[in-house]
Structure formats: C-alpha cells, structure tokens
Design a protein around this nucleic acid. Structure first.
Lengths: 184, 184
DNA sequence: GCCGGATGTTGACAATGCCCACATGCTCCG
DNA sequence: CGGAGCATGTGGGCATTGTCAACATCCGGC
C-alpha cells in the first residue's frame, strides 16, 4: 500500500509522499472549516503520521498555509489559461472574468486564504511566483483588447472589478449570477 | 481612578467600562499583529483584568472579533457620510470611492477582518446592521448619479470596483495612488 | 441593612504550535 | 555486500489559548 505515484516535483519518501498527503489533508480541512480549521496536528492525523512529522516538510504552520495558497494560484492559473484558450479575442476578457469568479465561488475558503493578506508573499517565493503567473494571463488579455496608452490603468481596473466581485461572492454578500451580470 | 466616561451604549460597570476597554485592546492587537494576534487572554491582560473577565461581555472570541468588525463598519460609515457631505453630486461618487480606499489603506487589518469572511453575519446582528448601513450610503450615491433602469447593476459594479481596489491595496498588491487613479 | 444578580477571579482541561532527543530505514560509497 | 550518513518519522514536553465551572465581590433596590 501507499504506492503513491509522485506525479509532481516532490521527492519520494519514507512512507509515501507525505508532503502531498499533508497538502491534501490541509485542503480538506480548509474547505470544510476555513483557515482556522487547518491545524498541523489534525493534518498529521489525517495523513496517518505522528503530530511532529509535518515539520520535516513544512517549517511552520504558516508554510503549510502558503503551500495551500500556492496550490490555489496554480489552479486559478490553469482555469484562466483554459478559459483564454477557449475564447476568441473579443470575448476573451469576459471569459477570463467568468473563470475567475467561478474559481472564487467554487473554492471560497482557498480564495480567501489566497487573498486574505495573512500570508507574507515575500517570505514564500513559490507563492509570489504562482500568484504573479496567474495575473500575467489576466493582464495579457486586457492589454490585447485595449492597447491604448492607458492600458495599464485599464488592466488594473478590470482586475479590480473582477477581484472585488469575487470577494463579494466569496463572502456571500452577493449572488454569483449577479456578479457574472456585471462582467459585460 | 478608572472613571471612564461611557460615551456610548455600554452600561457602567464594576471596574469602569470593561467592554469598551476590551474593544480598545482588541483594536490595538488587531492593528499591530493582525487577526491572529487578537487573543482573548491578551486583551484581558491589556485591560488589566483576569483571563476570564471578557466572558462577562463577549460569549466567545469570535464575538469580540465581530465587535471589532462592527466598530470598523461604523467608522467606514462615518467616513463615507463625511465624504458625501463635502462633495457635490457630480464628484460625489468619486469622493466616496476615495474615502473607501483611504479607510482600507489606513486600517488594513480591520478592513480585512470586516471582509475576511471569517465572521458569520447572520450570527451577529449588530455586524450585519452596521455593514448594511455603510453600504446604504454608497448605493445611494450611485443611484443618484445613474438613475437608469440598470442602476442596480451599476451600483454593484461601482461597489465591486472600489472594493476590489481596496482589497488589492490592503493586501499590498498595488499602491494606494494607483488605486485612486482608477476611480475616475 | 441586607439580598440578588451582575461583574470579576481562580483553577482546570483539552487542543495547538513548536522544540528536543531519539528511532528507523533508505541510499550510496567503499 | 556491508556499514555509514542522512533524510524521514516518533515520542515527550512546554507555553499559550479558548472555554467551562465554582467561587468571590460589589452595586442597587427592597
């Protein structure tokens, strides 16, 4: 048992791929109980190891949270890229916005962790890189549609609009359908 | 000593106005160390009471956090009202947006607590009321400028834009000046 | 003047993050 | 082939926290 295929960058370990297991456990906890519920010891329990094993893979609880957020940015990036590939230029920006909103709606806890400001990006390079990569796709789509001199400001505005809608949806202040109606 | 003037709704108590003192202590902790740093016991320490005294005023730590968020919405509401009063209709909406951004920038920790999604509005009526009141001012200003049939959607869009900018500023992803430039 | 309830205190318990010393089992080098 | 070295996992322990229960104190109304 435990013949996990390490389908990623992680090394292969003693008892399977514990790092991956802890991230999976953390995602479960995050989605079911929010950031507060992500506990080092509980993640260890779910992964079937002792309460101290996680320290061999994450230097602190915050590092685990950063890994979860990084995972989130990777997923968002994939979703944005997919949406960009399926739409032609005129509608592309709207499609990206919709994908952004769908992501926030589909995994509210992760979205809030990603943008909750709890995590210090400077202290977690992987996180900074993953988030910059995701926004690169968005910025590219804006520049493509609006190649004016004020492209930067327009990109920012588009980003902020979508981001604000996503937060409002994640916080259940508005309905997802209302948010999508604002994208036109 | 401890002759605090209870300048609000709180009753007057045994050792002064502990509820107010705990909120003040909580604000200090919040601003200096983020939500995670707001500890029941530390707030009690700052207020000079035993570790269990807070339970006579807040049923749980989350209730204290809710009170801090409520206080934040009251402050935001005041700021928005003041900005609305100082500007005439054409510029009023922009002025409101600026006030919103200034608030988020000036007290990032409180802003994140208010919109972090950690707090269940349904469980804290005061919080729900205070947040609804603050948004009432914003919505009113939008409707005033854009009395079209799609006023609701426009209000939502304006709110989302400002809200997204505020989040990006609070998370230090963009500069406050960049955000203000997007308000026009 | 005293009595009840609101307010504050002390003590305790489980859970958590993190540190230390120790055990285990790959892996690689001779 | 065998043992050394090191990455990985374990167990115990400590300080802190949120919360509960029992007890103390102090105010206002009878």
């Amino acid at each position: 048992m435990w013949a996990l295929s390490t389908s990623g960058g992680g090394a292969s370990y003693h008892h399977g791929d514990l790092r991956r297991g802890l991230i999976a456990a953390g995602q479960d906890l995050l989605r079911s109980g929010g950031v507060e519920a992500v506990s080092f010891r509980e993640a260890a329990r779910l992964a079937g190891v002792s309460h101290n094993a996680p320290y061999r893979h994450f230097p602190s609880r915050e590092a685990l949270l950063a890994a979860l957020a990084t995972e989130g940015f990777l997923a968002l990036h994939r979703a944005l890229d997919r949406a960009a590939g399926e739409a032609r230029p005129p509608d592309r920006l709207t499609a990206l916005g919709r994908a952004y909103l769908r992501f926030a709606e589909g995994d509210r806890a992760t979205f809030r962790l990603m943008f909750g400001g709890t995590l210090d990006r400077a202290a977690h390079p992987d996180l900074a890189e993953a988030s910059a990569a995701a926004f690169g796709t968005l910025r590219g789509a804006v520049a493509e549609r609006e190649p004016s001199a004020s492209a930067h400001r327009d990109a920012l505005r588009a980003w902020a609009l979508v981001h604000g809608l996503a937060h409002l949806v994640a916080d259940r202040q508005i309905e997802a359908a209302q948010a999508e109606a604002c994208l036109v």
